[in-house]
Write a protein that binds this DNA or RNA. Sequence first.
DNA 1: ACCGACGGGACCTCCCGTTGTT
DNA 2: AACAACGGGAGGTCCCGTCGGT
Lengths: 200, 200, 200, 200
Amino acid sequence: MRKGDKTREYIIMQAANIFNQQGYFGSSVSDIMRETGLRKGGIYNHFESKDELVLAAFDYAIQLVNKRYAHAIEGKSTALEQLIAIISVYDNIIEDPPLKGGCPLLNTAVESDDTHPVLREKAREAMDRWLRFIRIIIKKGIKLGEIRNNIDVDAVATFIVSTIEGGVMVSKLYQDSAYMHSVIDQLTHFIEHTLRKTKH
Amino acid sequence: MRKGDKTREYIIMQAANIFNQQGYFGSSVSDIMRETGLRKGGIYNHFESKDELVLAAFDYAIQLVNKRYAHAIEGKSTALEQLIAIISVYDNIIEDPPLKGGCPLLNTAVESDDTHPVLREKAREAMDRWLRFIRIIIKKGIKLGEIRNNIDVDAVATFIVSTIEGGVMVSKLYQDSAYMHSVIDQLTHFIEHTLRKTKH
Amino acid sequence: MRKGDKTREYIIMQAANIFNQQGYFGSSVSDIMRETGLRKGGIYNHFESKDELVLAAFDYAIQLVNKRYAHAIEGKSTALEQLIAIISVYDNIIEDPPLKGGCPLLNTAVESDDTHPVLREKAREAMDRWLRFIRIIIKKGIKLGEIRNNIDVDAVATFIVSTIEGGVMVSKLYQDSAYMHSVIDQLTHFIEHTLRKTKH
Amino acid sequence: MRKGDKTREYIIMQAANIFNQQGYFGSSVSDIMRETGLRKGGIYNHFESKDELVLAAFDYAIQLVNKRYAHAIEGKSTALEQLIAIISVYDNIIEDPPLKGGCPLLNTAVESDDTHPVLREKAREAMDRWLRFIRIIIKKGIKLGEIRNNIDVDAVATFIVSTIEGGVMVSKLYQDSAYMHSVIDQLTHFIEHTLRKTKH
DNA sequence: ACCGACGGGACCTCCCGTTGTT
DNA sequence: AACAACGGGAGGTCCCGTCGGT
């Protein structure tokens, strides 16, 4: 990795934290200059515009979240265990978020949907991948007989993702992880009692 | 109602729509000038600052949402019916939102939590009222024997609100009400089968 | 005196204090609105512009100073006593100025000389009157044999006035009347020993 | 010296002239843009605010005055000669001021004393240095036997400075150096006849 | 005689981006 | 690869003044 690439990564890292906290419109290039210690030329040498930077920062942020998922499902063999593990990633989203400011997908989606088509498109793609990820696990669970086969897979995946993100929003608003814990409890109960195939 | 009060209300109305779509930092006073047809002098005659305006606009937006709730539960006598009715308010949040840009509580909470303490406080208060509203209905349902009495009222209220808001986020991101419908279906099922007291 | 005239005088009085402290460019009509409790219409009903108001306020301020002179020389029969009395008016310019902000002639002259020809003209006229006032007393003193007749009357008058105003400036800058007292002592000594005709 | 430093000095120089003529509140950043030929971005690259600029401009202005003192007392060995030389600096303050607008200490002191604490503090410090400068010369004169030893050094220094500044004010108001000349004559006379130790 | 409401513009500040230089 | 310097413009705020109403 060359010097320039390291600088680029460093800028992205700092920018991701700033954008995730203050949003795209609430963050200025000056904010990123201050945080990185670089001057304008040093930043614009790597990125053509604030736009290009925010897109790269979003990719980086999502990748951080994805690493948490990957780490969470490591060693979990059953679909139900994996679902629980994914949900548990959000257990301490307040105290230890993947990056400052909470969930980048939530933040970016809410800010960009009416203002920034390109960023919104990236958020959609990230959401697509997440939903697909959940759906695949559910389908695997059905195939393996862990999960009931009379459920609407898409709807359940949407439900799980929505509930998590809503929980993040509420917990973040109050800066209190108790709300997230409640949501996780309810969701876990849903998975254990509604999704799980009952033996007989 | 005097001329000035009408103008003030008109500014708030237009500003609420702009802020709800573009966010606080994404909206400029010039945007509001364009939308209202007033000049800066005309706007700053009614509001001392952009801040004062955004706070008033948020109050107005929340009031619009509350009116929908009030209208929804009209004539609904049981707690379960009321819960379902509240959820149903979000059924066509995409096609017919209370104001352009979707749910103001979601939008404001996500943008303000790390950037605008005063606005965040107003969002918290609105969230407090909403959660309390849901809890009261649930408690009434328990007392009247409609709802099981072995549930965690706070957790269930948080769960319902979170799921709705998360659903709004996902649906809004895709500009597709199908996601919201899925979430509502799941939530309705939860209410009917998990909350409802089973006869015996 | 009619209601309107009383209001006009009231505005002038408040405005004079504000202008004398903050200067013409440092004072806004809003400042005067706040201090008078009147609205814009109430002020512009009496004055066509900020300019007209500042001119009236200056006249009022100078008149206040002149009253102090008149009061000071009351009962003083000799020219030397009168000169001393006039100088003594500035003895407690810090603690008890004719209006807040110190000497209006000094303040107005310094601010207006390169910026506001009309106001400067009024300041010049006020200075003319003051210098003439001093000169007349000196000439009277010469004629009556109190004051030496080999002095340059104009120069002495200028000297006295300059020294007073410079003393006001220094004392005001430090907010300390000690400087003014020193200046007055020196000036008094000058009058008693340099101006006074020695007997023989 | 780098390009930016030269630009910075150039801005300060132009700004000092503008501020010294129009005052802090009477001068706009646009005025400085016009005079320097730079755009706002170019100015704000060197100064964070109008405040920072006015402070730098004041320092520059005072330094110009100090250079005149230094030059004036060059080659003057006795205290009395030095005092006269310093006073003579103001001989053609109207035709050839250190910078346009006259004496920066007078202008700044009068404008800032009730409006701009930071600038007032700088003015006080400049006045401190000036008074100290005069006092030291007087004390030296006393020690060397040129000046009478029964005078109040502080009072005399204050008197000299006050008279000069007052003279500047009057002369400037009339745009007529004759007033300054009168004041200088009187002051010179005072130094020669009241301060000077008489031989015996 | 005074207030309320608004226009039109200037204020200071900060924005994003470009260029020349090292 | 990074900085220094600057342009061109938009940001929110406040300015002075006008005019209709009461």
